[in-house]
Design a protein around this nucleic acid. Structure first.
Length: 399
DNA sequence: CTAAATGATTGAGC
DNA sequence: GCTCAATCATTTAG
């Protein structure tokens, strides 16, 4: 009995001498009746433990309780813990501390950069701005697209956070559950805190791999959204009416030389809330399409010419020399261009008055009198036969 | 749904 | 680097 306190307390002392992992009294083979009794006792206990699984639940429960209360239990338990710890440690040595997964880091970085995992608002708009910058857009015109993009992004973001929260909650729940289970079991089987810790880390690893999948699919969704957003921008979206009017006004009031200077392009771009490149595209398309089928555009030309004429008339009648915003050159110094501009106007207004003209004919008039050839080299015959140029030219609408 | 309209892209010429 | 010409891809009108 006098040994009992020593055994119960000295966890470290147990098994230090002689055979490791076995309490001293189990190694004292020389003991007398007392030693034999203890051996028998231990054998008995082990026997009970070994057979506990064969018993009914109630029986086992009772047995468990009895064993728990047994005086030898703490000592045995310590021994088992010690053995267990060694094996656990060896297991643990096998699995090294994993470094932070580079792929996970990449995903995290991307989610942060896209504003999905970052702070609430700033990230999203930053990403949108980045997307806008990447696409080289003017930013002002595609606010609708931006809001669309942002809405979708925040949708993704919301799903991501909901899922993440769910996973975290599930992880915590599961961890707590397992820990409780292990703690509960640690009363009957040797489970060291380290082992619990290890189990927790295993659970966390499992859940973080699930999280990684979530992050990955979120990243994919963002990529798809982004590419679609950028694609949509790159593809096409009709300019609004106002922008088209501004461009048309400039075009038809400069019919003789519809080549806006860089500054003019910039101004038009600003007015239409589009990019300079888009202005260039528009003029490129317009010139070519106008030239290909002047007749078709005649009505439009007359309309804009009339409008510009009215504007000019109003401006002059008011005495104020307010130049029409769409015709910055009209009051300028380039004499010849001014002359030709007036020619455009004059002819167009004329054709407007004589509305019974066939469009093509009027077009021919405008074209021929207003130097519609534009750039000298190409399309030499288009001036004289405005309906369809030389016979070789195929249909203008490429569908 | 189809055809026309239209913005963007591409390649050649200068 | 700009423009033209052809073409693509999408939107819009009927």
């Amino acid at each position: 009995m006098d040994e009992q306190p020593r055994l119960m307390h000295s966890h470290t002392g147990v098994g230090m001498a002689g055979h490791p992992g076995l309490p001293q009294h189990m190694q004292e083979g020389t003991g007398g009746t007392d030693g034999d009794g203890r051996k028998q006792d231990i054998g008995d206990i082990l026997q009970q433990i070994m057979t506990i699984t064969d018993q009914s639940l109630d029986e086992a429960q009772a047995r468990k309780h009895a064993l728990n209360c047994h005086r030898m239990k703490p000592a045995l338990f310590n021994v088992l813990c010690e053995i267990k710890e060694k094996t656990v440690l060896s297991i643990r040595g096998a699995q090294e501390e994993e470094p932070p997964d580079p792929q996970l880091m990449r995903l995290d970085n991307m989610l942060l950069a896209e504003g999905v995992s970052g702070p609430e608002k700033g990230g999203g708009s930053a990403a949108a701005a980045a997307a806008a910058a990447a696409s080289g857009g003017a930013g002002a015109d595609n606010s609708a697209e931006h809001s669309d993009y942002r809405a979708k992004l925040s949708q993704i973001r919301q799903i991501y956070h909901t899922e993440l929260e769910k996973y975290e909650q599930a992880c915590n729940e599961f961890t707590t559950h397992v820990m409780n289970l292990l703690r509960e079991q640690s009363r009957t089987r040797p489970i060291s805190p380290k082992e619990i810790e290890r189990m927790v880390s295993i659970i966390h690893r499992k859940f973080s791999s699930i999280q990684m999948q979530l992050k990955q699919s979120t990243c994919e969704a963002v990529m798809i959204l982004r590419s679609r957003f950028l694609d949509a921008r790159r593809k096409r979206r009709n300019f609004n009416k106002q922008a088209t009017e501004i461009l048309n006004e400039y075009f038809y009031s400069h019919l003789s030389n519809p080549y806006p200077s860089e500054e003019a392009k910039e101004e038009l771009a600003k007015k239409c809330a589009i990019t300079v490149a888009q202005v260039s595209n528009w003029f490129g398309n317009k010139r070519i399409r106008y030239k290909k089928n002047i007749g078709k555009f005649q009505e439009e030309a007359n309309m804009y010419a009339a409008r510009t004429a009215v504007n000019a008339a109003n401006a002059s009648s008011h005495g104020s020399q307010a130049n029409s915003p769409s015709t910055p050159n009209s009051a300028g110094s380039a004499g010849s261009f001014n002359m030709s501009n007036s020619g455009d106007l004059f002819m167009s207004v004329q054709s407007l008055n004589g509305d019974s003209y066939q469009g093509a004919q009027v077009g021919a008039n405008v074209q021929s009198q207003a130097n519609g050839g534009w750039q000298d080299a190409p399309t030499p015959s288009s001036v004289t036969s405005p309906t369809e140029g030389p016979g070789s030219v195929h249909s203008d609408t490429s569908n």
